[in-house]
Simulated assay, not measured.
Amino acid sequence: MNELLDREEIWWAQRSRVQWLGEGDRNTKYFHYRTSIRRRKDTIGGLWSESGSWCYDRASIAATTISYFKEIYTTTRPNRVEEVTSLFHLKVTDEMNENLIKDFTAEEVRSTLQQMHPTKAVRPDGMSIIFFQKF
């Protein structure tokens, strides 16, 4: 019985994201009340569309949201790009860019791998160790 109560407590803790549960609260009415309030606050019941109609089903809410973000992140006149970008100061010079795009050497790879923490790997399968041994 205690194991089932512990499982239920874990389930409610994950669901409610309440910090005070760790202090020993066991499924009180207050706890369930707070969880229900959070669920209501986190749920989008509907949105007003651009046409002024109320969208309440999932498909129309999704369509309204996508339409809204497409509109605010789309420009209709991108003809002044050069004028705007000319106002930015370059952070990467041509010389720096040449260094960034050049091929890396075996010594650079070896040095980088030696600087890595011993418990870290480039990939979970230990590819960094195999890669290092090839050089």
Rank of each mutant, 00 (worst) to 15 (best):
G126E: 05
I129L: 02
N97Y: 15
P118M: 07
V109E: 00
S111L: 07
R110I: 04
T85L: 05
V122G: 01
M96I: 13
A121V: 01
N97P: 15
L87T: 13
S128G: 12
V122I: 12
L113T: 04
K102S: 11
F104S: 06
E108D: 00
E107R: 09
V81Y: 14
V92Y: 05
H89R: 14
N79Y: 15
M96H: 15
P118S: 07
T112C: 00
F88P: 02
A121S: 10
K102H: 08
R80T: 05
I101C: 03
T119F: 06
V84I: 00
K102F: 06
K120H: 15
E108A: 07
V84T: 01
F104I: 13
R123S: 12
H89V: 14
V84W: 08
E82G: 11
R80C: 00
D125M: 11
K120A: 14
N97K: 15
Q114G: 10
S111T: 13
Q114H: 13
M116D: 12
V109F: 05
T105F: 04
L90C: 12
L90P: 06
P124C: 02
S111R: 13
T85I: 06
Q114R: 15
E83C: 02
K120E: 12
V109N: 01
V81G: 10
F88R: 04
H117F: 00
E82F: 12
L87S: 01
A121K: 04
K91G: 02
K102M: 11
L113P: 00
K91R: 10
A106P: 15
T119E: 08
V109R: 06
K91Q: 04
P124G: 04
V81H: 12
E83I: 10
E83F: 05
P118V: 03
S86Y: 09
S128P: 03
E108C: 04
H89G: 14
I129R: 09
H89C: 14
H117S: 06
L90Q: 09
P124E: 02
I101Y: 01
N99L: 14
M127R: 15
T93Q: 05
H117Y: 09
D94A: 03
N99H: 15
G126R: 05
T85Q: 09
I101N: 05
E107F: 13
T105R: 10
K91I: 01
D94H: 03
K102N: 00
N79E: 14
S111N: 10
S111V: 11
D103L: 09
L100I: 12
